[in-house]
Amino acid sequence: MRLTCPFCGPRDRREFHYYGAADYLNRPGPEAAASAWDDYLHNRDNPAGVTQDLWYHEQGCAAWLKVTRNTVTHEILAVDAVAGGAA
């Protein structure tokens, strides 16, 4: 599996660390209900199909990436920098 890092170009999967669903980007505010935190931390759509998840280019540029890909075919549809600023 290869991801095209927006900074570094196409790289082997072994350069990346996987975190989880892109849900982790939507951190509830400090006053959010307990159920919002439960959803944020634990519950997942977990689709058999297109999903978005978070990868860290650990053995590379150290960018956090949001990857749009298919969990059935492993097709990579898009790779975006979480913080933007991709070259």
């Binding site: 975190y19 150290a62 960018a63 913080a83």
Partner: peptide
């Protein structure tokens, strides 16, 4: 890196 890039870039 995650906290910075994801929440307060």
């Amino acid at each position: 890196d995650f906290v910075h890039q994801a929440f307060c870039a």
